[in-house]
Simulated scan of single mutants.
Amino acid sequence: MGTVVSIELADDLPTPRLQALIDSTCAWLHEVDARFSTYSDDSEVCRFRRGALTLEDCSADLRLVLDRCADLWRDTGGYFDAYAGGPLDPSGYVKGWSVEVASQRLADAGSTRHHIGAGGDLRMRGSGPGGRPWRVGVRHPWEADKLAWVLSVTDGAVATSGTYERGTHVWNPVAGKPASGLRSVTVVGPDLAVADAYATAALAMGEPGLTWLAERVAEGYESAAVTDDGRAFTSPGLPIASDSE
């Protein structure tokens, strides 16, 4: 998935059990990487997009991802587009989705307190070490050694999309040009796959994305954003950590 994944389990379980949970999570993420890689010719995604695999022959996971990407394309007015770069590339949804599924699999297996991080995508469940909420630092979009915000999350997801590390890698598919106007977008909500897609879509929109993000609060998604000229915006319910947390 082009990033390092970190897993932290805060459950009071025997060490062998914790190791087994981590091993199964890593196995799932490697499976997703192999199936959805756009760089491996024999991946399911690559076989499907060159016509070697029909939709009916695709796995249930790939069909689900394609359906969700189509829904998000509609819900974002075309700003989240798995075809923005030309050939199908659902990576903008798959990373968040795979971590969300990994968290649910951990919960089903008995882990009620954990943190999974994949680049700018994080999923927290339950309380962190010491019974406190998990603390999430959102990187300052110009100064890599500083934080713009510190969030406090017990059950939820945090996704950040920005132009400060990989430049203009986010494309505005509606305007047909690289995204501009916003330098960093962070979305906090109940589902990491959706939060990740919303952060990407808002970044693609540019400054109009600020208004669009404000409307997502009704869906349970809070946000924070920094414009290219350094202005910062947060939604009213953004879970900013207090000094006591």
Score class of each variant (00 low, 15 high):
178 P>T: 03
198 Y>Q: 12
165 E>Y: 07
189 G>Q: 08
209 G>L: 06
208 P>F: 03
175 A>I: 06
184 S>K: 09
210 L>N: 02
198 Y>N: 03
212 W>D: 10
186 T>P: 12
170 V>Y: 00
172 N>L: 04
169 H>D: 12
193 A>P: 04
199 A>I: 10
179 A>Q: 01
210 L>R: 05
201 A>D: 08
187 V>P: 03
200 T>F: 07
180 S>W: 00
212 W>I: 10
181 G>S: 14
175 A>D: 15
184 S>R: 12
196 D>F: 03
186 T>I: 14
200 T>Y: 09
209 G>S: 07
189 G>Y: 07
176 G>R: 03
187 V>D: 04
186 T>C: 15
193 A>C: 09
180 S>G: 06
201 A>W: 01
166 R>Y: 13
171 W>H: 14
180 S>M: 04
167 G>D: 10
184 S>M: 13
195 A>F: 03
175 A>W: 03
204 A>C: 12
170 V>F: 02
189 G>N: 11
200 T>W: 04
166 R>K: 14
207 E>P: 10
177 K>Y: 02
209 G>T: 00
211 T>H: 11
208 P>G: 08
206 G>A: 07
196 D>W: 00
208 P>E: 09
208 P>M: 09
190 P>E: 13
179 A>R: 07
168 T>K: 05
191 D>M: 11
206 G>Q: 04
